[in-house]
Simulated assay, not measured.
Amino acid sequence: MPSATAVEPPEPTLGETMAGVTAWVRENPLATLLLAICGGLLVYFYGFYSVFMNGAQSTAVWAWKGWNDENDQVHCRFIAPIILFILWQRRGELISIVKEPSLRGLAFVISGIVLFVLGIRCLQARLAILSLPLVVYGSAEYLGGKACARIFIFPCLLMLFMVPVGGVIQSTVTLQLLASKTVGALCALLGIHIQLIGTTINVDGHSFEVAGGCSGIRSLMAMTMLAALYVYYALGRLWQQFVVFAGSIFFALIGNIARLFTVVLVAKFWNPEIAGGLYHDYSGFVFFPIAVLAMVGFGNLISRDWSQASARIAKTLTAPDHEAPRKDVDEVEGEKKPASPISYDY
């Protein structure tokens, strides 16, 4: 008899979800009140409590303005909808799990509040943004327990990518030097004459500065966020997720160095103005997808079941040879034996 396979229950519809939420609200009025208070406080302090930029911007407004083209972080504006989508996908678990409130969640909530107050006092909006994952995770564990908080782990980690890099780009001297020196080494290896002075590359009298934005920090931020989403959905084992996520940093840096190297090649063998203008501005749309594909290929490589693959290869190598096709003419000691004469019946 064929073995029965486990069938996962379908995700609840919108109506079933609303019915489940309504039932939970009726059964847990105190938890509902606490949840409403926490949600209201989060919306007010992060969205409407204006303290930054001389009291003109709240934490949310400051972050929104930091997600701009200059910082190459426009993609951060989609993080909140992505988090809501992930939680919506796991709505069945959130409804069905047994809620066991845990006081340990208060430790995370208090830590987040302290960090938020510290960010307000120091006028460091990044600290205020970093406090949000602590508050959300702590609230989930305090109201729903460890099983509920476990669902919020990845969305809370994804919130870390909401921090605008902004002035952090000015502190990327190490990455700038790494990129410029690597490009210089590649040119020396291939016999391409350039002059390297710090982070400035001189190509036939034309200077190209490896600025903070060209250091790889921006592509690094985007790549790591994509890597986090990829490993969350595509890889099941924790060690595979960590390896691919760490490897995404390497692929982002390599892709950026390859882009800078091609800028030098375009300036050397074609047109320096095009290299520093049109090609520099749009080459990222070529090398970044290549880096992403390299990361996906690496993830596919380490997630394959190599034991089955090696077993198939071994079976192919050890399989007996097929019988040689039968010939119409027998060969005896290298000489052909004529076929039997054909008889005709009249």
Rank of each mutant, 00 (worst) to 15 (best):
V7G: 08
E8D: 07
E8P: 02
P9A: 13
P9K: 12
P9G: 04
P9C: 03
P9R: 08
E11S: 11
E11Y: 07
P12W: 08
T13R: 00
T13S: 06
T13C: 00
G15M: 06
G15V: 13
E16P: 11
T17S: 05
T17V: 10
T17K: 02
M18E: 12
M18A: 15
A19L: 03
A19Y: 00
A19G: 03
W24G: 00
V25C: 06
R26T: 10
N28K: 11
N28S: 10
P29Q: 11
P29Y: 07
L30N: 03
L30Y: 04
T32R: 00
T32K: 00
L33S: 06
L33F: 13
L33G: 13
L34N: 01
L35E: 07
A36R: 09
I37Q: 04
C38E: 11
G39M: 09
G39N: 10
G39K: 11
G39C: 13
G40M: 05
L41I: 11
L41W: 06
L42I: 12
L42F: 09
V43N: 04
V43Q: 06
V43I: 10
Y44K: 09
Y44T: 04
Y44F: 14
F45D: 02
F45H: 04
G47Y: 05
Y49W: 14
Y49D: 13
S50P: 04
S50N: 11
S50W: 01
S50K: 08
V51W: 01
V51Y: 03
F52W: 11
F52Q: 05
M53C: 08
M53S: 14
N54R: 14
N54W: 13
G55C: 09
G55M: 04
G55H: 05
A56Q: 02
Q57H: 13
Q57E: 10
Q57S: 12
S58G: 13
T59Y: 02
A60D: 01
A60V: 00
A60K: 01
V61S: 10
W62Q: 03
A63P: 07
W64P: 01
G66H: 07
G66T: 05
W67M: 09
D69S: 15
N71I: 09
N71P: 07
N71R: 09
V74Q: 15
V74R: 14
C76K: 12
C76D: 14
C76W: 10
R77V: 03
R77F: 01
F78R: 02
A80V: 14
P81L: 03
P81S: 04
I82R: 12
I82K: 12
I83V: 14
F85R: 14
I86T: 03
I86A: 07
L87D: 07
L87E: 08
L87A: 07
